[in-house]
Measured scan of single mutants.
Amino acid sequence: AEEIWQQSVIGDYLARFKNDRVKALKAMEMTWNNMEKKEKLMWIKKAAED
């Protein structure tokens, strides 16, 4: 689920960090860890469908 979420937001994060992939990935990891369980559930369901 986290991978699907990352694939959907990586472009936004890379743009925000001027294509600094290391910073973008760290920010994504922090965002994922801070997400509410119900927000993650949507992505977990999406992962299950694929």
Rank of each mutant, 00 (worst) to 15 (best):
A1M: 07
A1D: 03
E2N: 10
E2P: 15
E3N: 09
E3M: 14
E3D: 10
E3Q: 13
E3G: 09
I4F: 14
I4H: 08
I4C: 12
W5K: 00
W5A: 00
W5C: 01
Q6C: 10
Q6G: 10
Q7K: 13
Q7I: 09
Q7N: 10
Q7C: 12
Q7H: 09
S8N: 06
S8W: 11
V9E: 02
V9F: 04
I10T: 03
I10H: 03
I10E: 04
I10P: 00
G11L: 15
G11F: 10
G11I: 13
G11C: 14
D12Q: 10
Y13P: 00
Y13A: 01
Y13N: 01
Y13H: 02
L14W: 02
L14A: 01
L14G: 00
L14P: 00
L14Q: 02
L14T: 03
L14R: 01
A15S: 11
R16Q: 10
R16K: 11
R16F: 11
R16A: 11
F17C: 06
F17E: 04
F17T: 04
F17R: 01
F17H: 09
K18S: 13
K18G: 14
K18R: 09
K18H: 13
K18W: 09
N19S: 06
N19A: 05
N19D: 12
N19M: 12
D20C: 04
D20L: 02
R21V: 13
R21I: 15
R21G: 07
V22T: 11
V22W: 08
V22Q: 13
K23C: 07
K23R: 13
K23W: 02
A24I: 05
L25I: 10
L25P: 00
K26C: 08
K26T: 08
A27K: 04
A27Q: 06
A27I: 05
A27C: 07
M28D: 00
M28H: 01
M28E: 01
M28W: 00
E29M: 07
E29N: 08
M30T: 11
M30R: 08
T31K: 07
T31D: 15
T31Y: 14
T31H: 12
W32D: 00
W32A: 00
W32K: 00
W32R: 00
W32G: 00
N33V: 07
N33F: 08
N33L: 11
N33T: 09
N33P: 02
N34R: 08
N34W: 04
N34G: 08
M35L: 04
M35G: 01
E36W: 04
E36M: 03
E36C: 06
E36I: 04
E36V: 04
E36H: 06
K37E: 15
K37L: 15
K37F: 15
K37N: 12
K37R: 12
K37V: 15
K38M: 10
K38P: 08
K38E: 15
K38T: 13
K38Y: 13
E39P: 01
E39W: 04
E39R: 03
K40E: 02
K40W: 02
K40A: 01
L41D: 15
L41A: 12
L41Y: 07
M42K: 15
M42E: 15
M42F: 15
M42P: 08
M42W: 12
M42R: 15
W43A: 04
W43D: 03
W43K: 03
W43L: 03
W43S: 02
W43M: 02
W43I: 03
W43P: 03
I44Y: 11
I44M: 09
I44W: 06
I44V: 09
I44D: 07
K45Q: 13
K45I: 13
K45A: 14
K45T: 15
K45W: 06
K45V: 08
K45Y: 06
K45S: 13
K46V: 07
K46A: 10
K46P: 04
K46Y: 07
A47I: 06
A48F: 13
A48D: 07
A48Q: 13
A48M: 14
A48H: 10
A48C: 15
A48Y: 11
A48E: 13
A48P: 03
A48N: 10
E49M: 12
E49L: 11
E49H: 11
E49T: 12
D50E: 14
D50A: 15
